[in-house]
Amino acid sequence: MMNISVQNLNMTYPTGKIALRDISLDIKSPNLIGLLGPNGAGKSTFMNLLTAGLLPTGGSILLDGEPLVHKEKKLKSKLGYLPQSFGLYDELTVWQFLDYMAALKGIRDNKKDIERVIQETNLKDKRKARIRTLSGGQRQRVGIAQALLGNPELLIFDEPTVGLDPEERISFRNLFSKNAQDKIVLLSTHIIEDVQSVCNRLIAINHGKILFDGTPEQLILSAQGHVGLLENQQEEQGFKVTARVNTANGVHYRIVAKQLPFGAQVVEPTLEDAYMYLIGKEGDKQ
């Protein structure tokens, strides 16, 4: 069982940019957490702090009750991490690269483990291929595979489904879900579909602050009565169009708003509607 406690976490870059403001939350295993937020919201900074790639400028992160700064080695021994942007050793084959990463992780009997992650990430055909010959999606799969090596207790994926085709995305969602049965999986994304069906907890961040921390159902519930359909395009005032739907009766517009405009037909919100509503609401405050 792993327990991560984040207390009043602040992060300001030397340039003066404030990335995180006073974040507090607890994460316990098992858990599959979706971290949502627009680009530049502070998701990657948060993940970097959780993986000890950055030191916070304020607050603390406790790993099983002890400050992370003193338990870095312990964290790294239990961590599988896929950063948003990463490089691989192009001259190695997929198998050699995973062997290298497994060896860095100190995994004994790494052959079995490598076979397992190759299987799970559908890289069986590419195991002997040089990394330089792989497509973007295949490289992403190698990145995910290396994170899964050693069956770590904490898996952190930063935009893991970028570059994957729809079929692969579904397959990986299921893989994350399966892994989350006995560990913590933290999934950062701005693709709502990725988290909708699998995450049991969502954390939405914007401008370095937590806007929401709860279940997907709670997020959907928070948008009840704020999502509607408009038959005709109106001047966009006080609402945000989330989709343009072609129907037999013409084009319908799906909108979210604090107060739906006159004539809008209230509909059941989706997770994406709820997220848009949440972000939009925050935008209005700003």
Binding site: E72, P83, G87, L104, Q146
Partner: peptide, 17 residues
């Protein structure tokens, strides 16, 4: 240099110092 140039460090430094 290559670990920084090609961001390989993003993976390796999450494993070790």
């Amino acid at each position: 240099d290559r670990v920084y140039k090609y961001h390989t460090d993003a993976l390796t430094e999450s494993i070790t110092s």
